[in-house]
């Protein structure tokens, strides 16, 4: 196996670990569409990073506002910019819909296309030397060890945060009305969830691209919830499903030279179809 493969695999494992648990919450709280909104917003963030000179193809030197910086730093700063842009978009969606003046799905639709449009214009006018497809559908080619480091850093922070806030977060997710009555701060819980979703999206984007990053935040949960109603089993199956999806997708992508994101999504979609069939058979039995 070529050396190039390993940073991608290690990053993929981080993505699987961090997205699998979140995906159960995303499915149960019906956040799949807001996840779409956040992940597409990442494209706007990429556009900003490109306009700043951070996003460049192989052989070119990244710059930050005209000053040359190292490729590793460029990856780190880009991650930060895209994350902040995603978080701002999530908060904008929340702000638009919370005031009651815009329906949540309309707000998501507007922010999604707005961010995509900004990203497209900025990428078009920046000389990046990188194909758009890389950002839209992900690629293992550009994944470096620094990405794996960021991925595992984000995964550990996410898992630790979920563990620390598991009680109020689960109470609120299960029964928001009584959680409020018992003193759980709803805005804090919402902000926490949006921050974790934005972090996970930006991390997953590296392999899956902005269009397909939400697959990692929806499919593992959707698969596991088809198969069990026991919390421990659901979590274990979500982690297993995400691992099979990422590793399977990477192998397929590598062997057939298919784009990485679509390969991962296809494997996950197949797993979902299998889970759905298993569920249907159990109901008939």
């Amino acid at each position: 196996m070529r050396g190039l493969f390993w940073p991608g695999v290690v990053t993929g494992l981080a993505i699987a670990a961090l997205c699998s648990l979140l995906s159960v919450l995303v499915v149960l709280k019906r956040l799949a569409f807001i996840g779409q909104g956040i992940s597409h917003a990442a494209f706007g963030g990429v556009g900003i990073a490109a306009a700043a000179g951070l996003v460049v193809g192989a052989g070119l030197t990244p710059r930050l506002l005209g000053v040359e910086i190292g490729p590793q730093s460029a990856i780190g700063v880009t991650f930060g910019i895209v994350f902040l842009f995603c978080l701002a978009s999530a908060l904008l969606i929340g702000w638009l819909s919370e005031r009651g003046q815009t329906e949540a799905d309309t707000a998501i639709g507007i922010v999604l296309v707005g961010a995509m449009a900004v990203g497209a214009i900025l990428l078009h006018s920046s000389q990046t030397g990188v194909s758009w497809e890389t950002f839209l559908f992900g690629s293992i080619m550009g994944v470096e060890w620094i990405d794996a480091g960021i991925g595992w850093g984000v995964a550990l922070v996410t898992l630790l945060t979920l563990w620390l806030f598991r009680r109020p977060l689960l109470f609120w997710a299960f029964d928001p009305a009584v959680a409020r009555a018992m003193g759980v701060h709803e805005r804090t819980m919402n902000f926490l969830l949006m921050t974790l979703l934005a972090l996970a999206t930006v991390t997953a984007m590296k392999l899956a691209g902005v269009v397909l990053a939400t697959a990692m935040l929806v499919l593992p949960g959707a698969i596991s919830l088809r198969l069990s109603v026991r919390s421990g089993v659901v979590i274990a199956l979500a982690v297993a499903g995400a691992l099979v999806g990422v590793i399977g997708g990477l192998v397929v992508s590598f062997e057939f030279d298919w784009p990485t994101g679509p390969s991962i999504v296809c494997v996950l979609a197949l797993l979902f179809a299998g889970a759905k069939a298993a569920e249907a058979m159990r109901h008939r039995a």
């Binding site: 709280k29 997710a173 299960f174 928001p176 009305a177 009584v178 919830l225 069990s228 659901v234």
Partner: peptide, 11 residues
Amino acid sequence: PQRPDCELAFP
């Protein structure tokens, strides 16, 4: 509360 509004799909 009246008519609890819980996510009954929770595992």
